[in-house]
Design a protein around this nucleic acid. Structure first.
Lengths: 341, 341
DNA sequence: ATGAGTTGAGAGAGCGCTCTCTGGAGTGTG
DNA sequence: CACACTCCAGAGAGCGCTCTCTCAACTCAT
């Protein structure tokens, strides 16, 4: 029973000073070793390192942060109204990418839910010096209310911000092109009544994916009227598909602006006794867990979401450290063919 | 071109000292006002508050943290091998609950992905003084390798830790009872070949839910052999269901230890031309987004996941601040009847 | 051998805040 | 009126670290 139960109390936290004393050098030297400054006698450095190990020393972040005026932390803002997006695979996957990238850096990720009722709280937190940069994964256009902070703090957005986009740094995919390709898959395989379940029209991804669909159907000489707007949720997808089928029973294909709405569309389609893909072909967007959880497996646009998160974090860190950074990063997509077309 | 490219420089960050100067009082007094100490002349306090507003002052976290030896931050550990759980609604929803609770406190949430290859990095981060407490949402039993830290740092787990559980603080639901109830729903409605897709048997939730199923089928006088183990993922659910159907085609009900595996089971069932619930009734566990995204909608155990996250955070904060905290919190569940039974 | 140039370690002044300690002003009692 | 008390604001010492400045000890050309 090794019960490491030392009451948590007495553990004396080792400081730079203690390491210096043990190694018989000055604090400055220890600091130099810790931050591996080149101008330290290798022999002395070795001595110091031994002392660090012996004491199990870890630099105190707060102290370092205080003098360096750098917190080594970036904050992810989630707006309260959007907090349900946690259930959204897109959101969580972006976060995963961000966290993955930051693991290999000196930066720490923290996350706040900003309540619309007291924006000052969020504001003061961000400006309180404990945050070096901000990441915004937005779902509603209102989430871009943070754009104005980008003068005082480095910020990177997931997707082109709807407002203030002229100055903002962001990472995205070419939604329009990807949606075009996805729709082409439908129009070139003999489908003649190609509908779409579009995303919210106050979000760039919603707007651009609809535009891509439009271009493809127009190019194929098909009608552009079979559009219903959803909210990127499963339920809204079901409802949009219901409306679509109520309007036109001859629909034989549908492009949904994300996989969740596609999954919702499945419910509406199968609920009417129609078969996928025989009666109606379905193509989604994102290639998230919903794409493979439905039957038949969904053909969809692969959205490199983890990569997107990584790039966001990378861009932000570059910005913070004053290194050159691309204002706009555009990631490639590809169409994943499964059983729904 | 407003190019807010001011090199980050000119914004002079207001300090306590500046507020004191403006208000014509000492630093100590401003500090007292900021931390609303009772022993301050209301009139003076008003003056100071005005100065704070005028300067748009925000206390520097690092400085405060340095002297108070308290970072006001809690860390969520995610192990690298588990980082794919970001896509898991359970995980993201717990995080949501945690973040939601912390929003109303002085604490900040940060998240690290600990790489198994360099555990010292994680360890030194946790012990570096910038973390007041730790939250662990585990999926593999290996994630409990952090239990040994609980002597040096307050920790709260999601679910009973497999090892070291005797001392650990955690929040959970009564998995066994809930699984029992869910299975009863099947056995009492005339189903006689009730199988289960169990979760990993190195996780308490996997073990306990299987135990609950066992009790219910035994009680109903049914066989206890129709068990296949999955990994809480959609795919593993499909495969487990395949194996089950290969073993016994007379199965007329299945209890899946989470909704994702239930969704996977749908694929296998419907792939064989069987109908839900006519031929096979399905009950899941968690009541997450998968439950409503499948057709027919899944009957499942409602798992109060947001609540669980909130409770975890609450317990941790209590622990940090030395207030009494329940070592074990057990949350209630309920069965949500939908269309799959 | 001498002065300039180079290298590497120590001294010490803070970073912005909290908190104990001190002391001046006001209140109440003998 | 002197004494003890209470109450509240200021002074000042750090919290653990970084970083500039200083200076001792060399190296090397003259």
């Amino acid at each position: 029973m090794t019960m490491t139960q030392d009451t948590g109390g007495p553990r004396p936290v080792p400081t730079l000073e203690m390491v210096a004393a043990l190694a018989g050098v000055s604090r400055a030297t220890v600091s130099r070793v810790v931050n591996d400054s080149p101008s330290v006698d290798p022999e002395l450095a070795q001595l110091v390192k031994k002392a660090i190990l012996a004491l199990d020393y870890t630099p105190n972040r707060a102290a370092r942060s205080l003098v360096k005026r750098r917190a080594n932390s970036v904050t992810l803002i989630v707006s309260e109204s959007t907090s349900k997006v946690f259930a959204d695979p897109f959101f969580s996957t972006v976060v995963q990418g961000i966290a993955l990238f930051l693991t290999d850096t000196e930066y720490t990720l923290n996350m706040i839910i900003s309540s619309e009722s007291k924006p000052e709280k969020t504001r003061s937190f961000l400006l309180g010096g404990s945050v070096d940069g901000v990441l915004v994964v937005s779902h509603h256009s209102g989430d871009h209310s943070w754009t104005h902070l980008s003068g005082s703090l480095p910020m990177v957005f997931a997707g082109r911000p709807l407002v203030g986009g002229g100055e903002a740094y962001y990472v995205e995919v070419d939604n329009e092109q990807a949606a075009y390709n996805a729709t082409r898959q439908l129009t070139t395989s003999g489908r003649t009544h190609v509908a779409t379940i579009a995303g919210p029209q106050d979000m760039p991804s919603g707007i651009d994916r609809l535009a891509g669909w439009r271009t493809a159907v127009r190019e194929a000489g098909l009608g552009e009227s079979l559009v219903e707007v959803g909210e990127f949720t499963v339920d809204s997808g079901t409802q949009a598909m219901q409306r679509l089928l109520d309007r036109d029973v001859t629909i034989d294909a549908v492009f949904a602006a994300n996989d969740q709405m596609a999954a919702g569309a499945y419910t509406a389609i199968q609920g009417r006794g129609l078969r996928i893909p025989e009666d109606i072909a379905v193509v989604g967007f994102d290639d998230d867990s919903f794409a493979t959880s439905v039957t038949p497996a969904l053909t969809t646009v692969h959205h490199p979401i983890v990569e997107l998160g990584k790039k966001m974090a990378e861009t932000l860190v570059n910005l913070i450290e004053g290194r050159p950074a691309h204002r706009v990063t555009c990631l490639p997509t590809s169409l994943v063919i499964r059983d729904s077309v």
